[in-house]
Nucleic acid binder design. Structure first.
Length: 591
RNA sequence: GGGGGCGUAGCGAAGAUGGUUAUCGCGCCGGCCUGUCAAGCCGGAGACCGCGGGUUCAAUCCCCGUCGCUCCCGCCA
């Protein structure tokens, strides 16, 4: 009873043919005298009919069929009577008159129905992921993921890239995310780390002369999860020699174009827009703004200076900023709604959210009493119309931007401003190379330590590290960071200076990634690359809001895999073999 | 580490100012049914209302704690 056809391929052309189908009982409708089974496999659904002409044995067996039994059906392809054609089914014009059914395996009562419409909670779906994955909804997403990976290989290989593997048991390196550590039994007391990305190895491959490299690489970061990130994820890791940032941009644009064309039949623009980091923060309050909607910030500093409103005036005088958002047509917002928005701003460090409403006669409500004399200048400058709501955050430039940016995102969601069918790509360029670490009171790499500063800053990096712009770029899609990359520093002298600025001693550098620095003593080519996140890309392409929806077997937000229940305890002997022992938990120690 | 939300039959939800027997749909079990396609009709079983404590004559409901899931801040070069 091996299948001769799948459940998605039969049409009127096959009428009269004897076929065998294998699949799962998707639906089961017993009308007494006549019985319908919807048989499902990866390819579709085909209706099987057992009518009164069927043998008694077959009728008896059919009565016992339950949801998700795995069965084989032998029968004849019949045309459905005209009034019984189902136009919603690809195979809706035919049905199989069953002659023989074999139960391949039985199925217990299901924890939830295998159905696109099943509304089981995620927790339960993950615990029974194999059932969840049977649904057409999940099958489509996993299939698209495959298509994207395949298109990636097709495109990059056609452009002369080699797919090269790098180790997953590597040396633990400092900085960045926490490493997952893997103890070595043979070298008891020593540990490997799982890679946070193949970064160092791909750079060494450039030193080795492999010019154009890619890898669809699993990466591991031991940090708290979110909807768009978890402990392990997959990136399309790309590195090239003898290239500029412009080369990386155009390659990535073509790659994305190819992926969207092949897997979604969607045509992207040939070039993506660009914003500098500074501009993006200044205008949208985010380094990953969703450009599917407008809501651009307006600067209020000049007017604030002229006003008598101490909070605004003070913020500007102390070198901060007053940023403004004009929300069209939302003057009807209640105090409750506005205070909800204020809560959002406060999460990001704003001390408050000021507001006014634009009415026909001028400004109303909120802080408007401080601004009546400036009303027409304000509406002109901001381009605000009666019926608009004005929102203000006064703080340091960075807090004002970030918190108002959070409000912009929130309004985008609440007002449904973003067209779910649009794909808005955006390059964020000119990132600062260093950021000030306020806890440690020192400069830290904004991205990673192997990034080349832009030429004009090289000579004077040390003078004001905060001003140094790196050869750094991110690719943003619909408000998500989906790729990040840089032109790397291949000059040992510049590299040493960068280490010095971030307070990284030469001995420490030598100890941690001396192998990379050593390789750079042997004629490293200038090189750079980028790494698009496969999970996030597919998440956006499928319209999902968590990467868990496009990962076959994801971890939950607690870093647990609900299906196999990992991580788990191990035999203490295994721990002993590794030369390790567990410390009691802190709470237990306190007792 | 911190904040918000949720937790009620196998699943998804409803519920009341704190007051008899906790409601509905799906699924499950039994029966009827010859054209359904989320089949229909009749009947039935199934819940220590996440767990622990407190307030109260009385708690699924209020309070405290705890566990689980989830969203967010921190964190994620």
């Amino acid at each position: 009873m091996k299948r001769t056809v799948t459940c998605g391929e039969l049409t009127k052309e096959h009428i009269g043919r004897s076929v065998i189908l294998n699949g799962w009982v998707h639906r089961n409708r017993n009308h007494g005298g006549i019985h319908f089974i919807n048989l499902r496999d990866r390819y579709g659904i085909t209706q099987v009919v057992i009518d009164e002409d069927a043998s008694e044995e077959l009728k008896e067996l059919t009565k016992g069929l339950k949801f998700e039994y795995c069965i084989a059906v032998k029968g004849i392809v019949k045309e459905r009577p005209e009034s019984m054609v189902n136009p919603d089914m690809a195979t809706g014009s035919i049905e199989i008159a069953a002659e023989e059914i074999l139960i391949l395996s039985r199925c217990e009562v299901l924890p939830f129905m295998v159905d696109e419409k099943s509304d089981a909670k995620e927790d339960l779906r993950l615990r029974y992921r194999y059932l969840d994955l049977r649904s057409f909804g999940m099958q489509r997403k996993i299939a698209l993921r495959h298509e994207v990976a395949f298109a990636t290989r097709e495109y990059l290989i056609s452009r002369g890239f080699y797919e090269i593997e790098t180790p997953t048991l590597i040396k633990s390196t400092p900085e960045g995310a926490r490493d997952f550590l893997v103890p070595s039994r043979i070298n008891a007391g020593k540990v490997f780390a799982l890679p946070q990305s193949p970064q160092l190895f791909k750079q060494i491959l450039m030193v080795s002369g492999f010019d154009k490299y890619f890898q669809i690489a699993r990466c591991y970061r031991d940090e708290d999860a979110r909807g768009d990130r978890q402990l392990e994820f997959t990136q399309i890791d790309i590195e090239m020699s003898f290239v500029s940032a412009e080369d990386v941009y155009s390659l990535t644009e073509e790659l994305m174009g190819y992926i969207f064309r092949k897997s979604l039949q969607f045509e992207l623009p040939a070039k993506f827009q660009r914003l500098t980091y500074r501009e993006a923060m200044n205008r949208y309050g985010s380094d990953k703004p969703d450009l599917r909607f407008d809501l651009e910030f307006k600067d209020f500093n000049e007017i604030a200076k002229k006003s008598d409103f101490g909070v605004f005036k003070g913020a500007v005088e102390q070198g901060g900023s007053v940023k403004t958002l004009v929300v069209p047509g939302c003057a009807g917002y209640s105090r409750k709604q506005i205070s909800d928005l204020e809560e959002t701003a406060k999460i990001y460090g704003a001390k408050g959210l000021a507001w006014m409403k634009v009415a026909d006669g001028g400004l109303e409500g909120g802080i408007s009493k401080f601004f009546h004399p400036l009303a027409s200048e304000i509406t002109d400058t901001l381009g605000a119309k009666p019926g608009d709501l004005l929102l203000f955050v006064a703080d340091t430039w960075s807090t004002a931007c970030t918190s108002l940016g959070a409000i912009r995102n929130r309004l985008g969601k609440d007002l449904e401003l973003a067209d779910p069918n649009r794909f808005e790509f955006l390059w964020i360029v000119d990132y600062p190379l260093f950021k000030w670490d306020n806890d440690e009171k020192k400069w830290a790499p904004a991205h990673h330590m192997f990034t080349m500063p832009q030429d004009r800053f090289i000579d004077s990096m040390e003078d004001n590290p905060g001003e140094v712009i790196g050869n750094l770029y991110d690719l943003v899609l619909n408000g998500n960071e989906i790729a990040s990359g840089s032109i790397r520093c291949h000059d040992p002298e510049i590299q040493k200076r960068i280490f010095r600025i971030v307070g990284f001693s030469e001995e420490e550098a030598e100890k941690r990634f001396g192998f990379l620095l050593e390789s750079f003593r042997y004629g490293p080519p200038p090189h750079g690359g980028i790494a698009p996140g496969l999970d996030r890309l597919v998440m956006i392409m499928t319209g999902e809001s968590t990467i868990r929806e496009v990962i076959p077997f994801p971890k939950n937000t607690m870093g647990i895999s609900p299906m196999d229940n990992s991580p788990s305890n191990v035999d203490p002997l295994l721990i002993k073999d590794l030369g390790l022992s567990w410390l009691p938990k802190e709470k237990e120690q306190e007792k």
